[in-house]
């Protein structure tokens, strides 16, 4: 562990260059503004009336969860390849917000499903694959809490993280590969511009929040790890001087 301490601390210093706190505040403000813009400017949908507004958070949450899990996959692969603790911590940070956003996607989908589909939930391919994605990343986060040895934790998390992220293309393509109750992806062809423009603005705003969240969690994890390493070294030296 001692060998990795110095680069870790140095890395956390180097990466603190961008003002992530302000970027996070800006992202949240942008998201609130985008939500208000969407709610105020788009008319009630032909079929679902104002229920359609749920789309402005449900869809960006799903897209950004996909991005977060892509980060998990890349960082986990890099960890398995290079064995750097920083990659493990980056994967964990991305997995946290990815899980949160997947939970939000499911919750909003259920709120929309009850009045639209007539039911809160059904086990069709899109909902099932999304639930699997969600539970795999909950398992990922639980695994991290239970394994104390950092190296083992990192190795096993990387494996679970990669397996979990493999679900992302399945979730995305589920509505095309199988028959579902969920609709297929919309596009500017199927969405009037009054809906897809606010949808895209909201997705970008949420992406700023996503990146700031990952950066913040990553930075604090790096600092915590550096502090832990220092503590370990101090304990070792104390033990050594007593002997």
């Amino acid at each position: 562990m001692t060998a990795s301490t110095m680069p870790l601390a140095a890395a956390s210093d180097r990466r603190s260059g961008l003002p992530w706190g302000w970027i996070a505040v800006g992202g949240v403000l942008a998201l609130v503004a985008a939500q208000v813009y969407g709610v105020l400017t788009s008319p009630p949908d032909r079929d679902m009336g104002h229920l359609q507004k749920i789309m402005y958070l449900h869809v960006p949450a799903a897209w950004n969860a996909f991005i977060a899990f892509f980060v998990v996959a890349v960082a986990s692969l890099r960890y398995l390849w290079k064995g750097r603790a920083a990659d493990d911590l980056l994967a964990a940070s991305a997995a946290e917000i990815g899980s949160l956003l997947t939970g939000l996607t499911l919750a909003l989908g259920m709120l929309w499903g009850k009045p639209t589909w007539g039911i809160w939930w059904t086990w069709e391919p899109r909902t099932t694959s999304t639930a699997v994605l969600f539970f795999m990343f909950l398992a990922y986060l639980i695994l991290r809490k239970f394994v104390d040895d950092p190296e083992r934790r990192a190795q096993w998390s990387a494996v679970v993280g990669i397996l979990g992220a493999l679900n992302v293309p399945i979730v995305y393509m589920s509505v095309r590969w199988w028959r579902t109750l969920h609709q297929v992806q919309g596009s500017p062809m199927t969405l009037d511009s009054t809906y897809y423009i606010p949808l895209r603005i909201n997705a970008v705003a949420l992406m700023i929040v996503l990146v700031a969240f990952i950066a913040h969690r990553y930075r604090s994890a790096m600092i915590t790890q550096a502090a832990d390493d220092l503590e370990d070294r101090a304990a070792l030296m104390e033990g050594g001087s007593r002997a």
Partner: peptide, 12 residues
């Protein structure tokens, strides 16, 4: 009885 909504979102 469940409704399968399409991917069409149109202003009336």
């Amino acid at each position: 009885l469940m409704i399968k909504h399409s991917e069409e979102y149109r202003a009336p």
